[in-house]
Design a protein around this nucleic acid. Structure first.
Lengths: 243, 243
DNA sequence: CGTAGGTTTGACTGATCTCAAGTTTGGTGG
DNA sequence: CCACCAAACTTGAGATCAGTCAAACCTACG
C-alpha cells in the first residue's frame, strides 16, 4: 500500500484503512469521488488563514505543514504532514480556514470537494468513523504540541519533535524511525518548537555530540532510541497507534 | 436555553444547536439516551491520562480543564471548559485517554456511554455533523494555543487566554465578556500559559496598572476591549463563532 | 482568631534570544 | 567541470525575559 501508487485514491484509502474497518463498498464509494491531482513547488501555500475553503486535500508525495502567525508575523508550525495525511479534514465542516496549509518540499496531492465528502460520510458510517477518528488523532497531536512548547526545555522539545516525525514518517511508509530524511531547515524546526534557528542549531549540535543522533546532510539517524525517547520525554501513545 | 436547566439533556442539546441544524427527531433521539448525572468536588479528576474510557461527559455546571504532564510532573493545561461543553468527545472513537480531564470548581456533569453516542451518530446525520464540528473547533482552539504558548510573550499570552475565556464563557451563557468570574488561581493560569505563577502575577499586575483589566477577588473586568484585543493579539475567528 | 492557600514583592539566576561574523553546502551557468 | 552565489549552518559575545528562591502579606473559612 504505497502512497506513491498510481491511483489518486490509494493514499486516502490507505489512510482510512489505518483508521478503522473499511469494506469493499466503502472503497467503491471512495473511488467514485471525483478528485483533482495537483502539485506545488517547495514552500508554497495550499490554503491561507482566513480563506473560504470548500475542498479537502490528501498529500500523496512530499511533505507539508500547517501554521499560524501572530500579528507581528511570528510563525508557529502546528503540525507536519507526510504522504497519506489528510491536510485539512476540518474543511468538511468548517468553511473558513483558521490556519495556513503549506508544502515544505515539492509535493503532489489530490483535492476533493468538501460537499462530496460530507455526502460520502452520511452514506458510509465506516468512512465517517475513520475520518472523524483521524481528526481526533490530529487534535491529540495538537495537545501534545501545546505540552511540548509550553513545558519542555529546548533540547527536549527538539528531541520530541524529531521522535514524532520519525515515528509518523515511518508509519506513512517513508523510511525507518532509525534513519530518515528530515526535509526542512533548522529555521523550520524553530518555527515548530518556538525557538530561534540559532538555538535549534546549538541543541541539535548537543544531541549530536551526546551521540543520540547523527546528522548527515538532510538525514537524521537516531543512534540510540531508548536514550532518545528518554531525552525527548516521548511516549507514542498520543498518536493512538495510527497517525 | 440555560445550561443549568433541570433536564440533564439541556446542556447537550443547547451545544448541538449551536453547532448546526437539529430537528425534533434529533432531539427525541438525544433525550432517549440513558445518561447519568454526577458531580465532583473542586480540583478532582474525571479522567486520567492512560485510562481506558468508554463514556463521554457533558459539563452542566462549574468549570473544568484538560491537561497533560511531562515525566517530570510539569502540568500543561490544554483547554478550559464551561457549562455545555462536551468534555471528551474524543472518547466516542478513541478508547484510551491521552490527557487528564479535571474540574476546577465544584461541578456537575452528565455521563453517556460512548457506544450509545456512536450508535446515535450513525442514525442521526445532523448530530454526527454537530458533534464532529464541535471536535473540529476543539482542535482549532488547540492550534491557537500552540501559537499562543510558542510565539507570544508572557503579557500577550495571558491577555489572550483571558480574552478566550471571556468570549467562550459568555457564549456559554455565563456573564458577559466585559465582566466575569475567573474561577482559577494564578498557578492555574500559569499552567495554561507555560509561565510560573510569580510571573503570571507580575503580568496581571501590569495589565491592571495599564488600565485594560480590573481585578476584584475572583472577578475580572475588561475595562478596554479594543485595547485588550490588541494587546492580546486576539481574533475570535478561530472559535468559529460557536465554541 | 488561627491557619492554609493564594497573592505580592524583591533580589538574583539562567535559558534562550539577538546581533554579527564566519563557514559550509548545494545548485547554476559559463 | 569548475566557479560562483545564495541559502543554510555554525560559532561567539552580550542582552533580556522569565524563572527561582524566599519572605511577607492577604483573605477566606473553619
Amino acid at each position: 500500500m504505497n502512497a506513491n501508487d498510481d491511483s489518486p485514491y490509494e493514499a486516502l484509502i490507505a489512510k482510512l484503512r489505518r483508521m478503522g474497518p473499511i469494506d469493499a463498498d466503502d472503497i467503491a464509494a471512495v473511488t467514485a469521488l471525483s478528485v483533482r491531482r495537483e502539485s506545488r513547488r517547495a514552500s508554497t501555500y495550499l490554503v491561507r488563514e482566513g480563506d473560504r475553503v470548500d475542498t479537502c486535500a490528501v498529500l500523496v508525495t512530499g511533505y507539508a505543514c500547517r501554521s499560524k502567525t501572530t500579528r507581528e508575523g511570528r510563525r508557529q508550525i502546528v503540525s507536519f504532514h507526510m504522504p497519506g495525511d489528510i491536510l485539512d479534514v476540518q474543511h468538511i465542516l468548517l468553511d473558513r480556514a483558521d490556519h495556513n496549509v503549506q508544502v515544505i518540499t515539492p509535493a503532489t496531492y489530490v483535492v476533493m470537494k468538501a460537499a462530496d465528502l460530507r455526502d460520502l460520510v452520511h452514506r458510509r458510517p465506516n468512512i465517517a468513523d475513520a475520518l472523524w477518528r483521524d481528526s481526533l488523532i490530529d487534535a491529540s497531536v495538537f495537545r501534545e504540541w501545546v505540552l511540548n512548547v509550553g513545558q519542555r526545555d529546548a533540547r527536549t522539545r527538539i528531541a520530541h519533535m524529531l521522535c514524532e516525525f520519525a515515528v509518523r514518517n515511518a508509519a506513512a511508509g517513508q523510511g525507518s524511525p532509525e534513519r530518515f530524511d528530515l526535509p526542512m531547515t533548522q529555521e523550520t524546526i524553530g518555527d515548530a518548537t518556538g525557538l530561534t534557528p540559532v538555538h535549534v542549531n546549538r541543541m541539535l549540535a548537543a544531541l549530536d555530540a551526546e551521540g543520540v543522533i547523527v546528522r548527515q546532510r538532510q538525514q537524521i539517524q537516531i543512534a540510540d532510541w531508548p536514550r532518545m525517547k528518554r531525552i525527548a520525554d516521548f511516549d507514542a501513545a498520543y498518536l493512538h497507534e495510527a497517525a
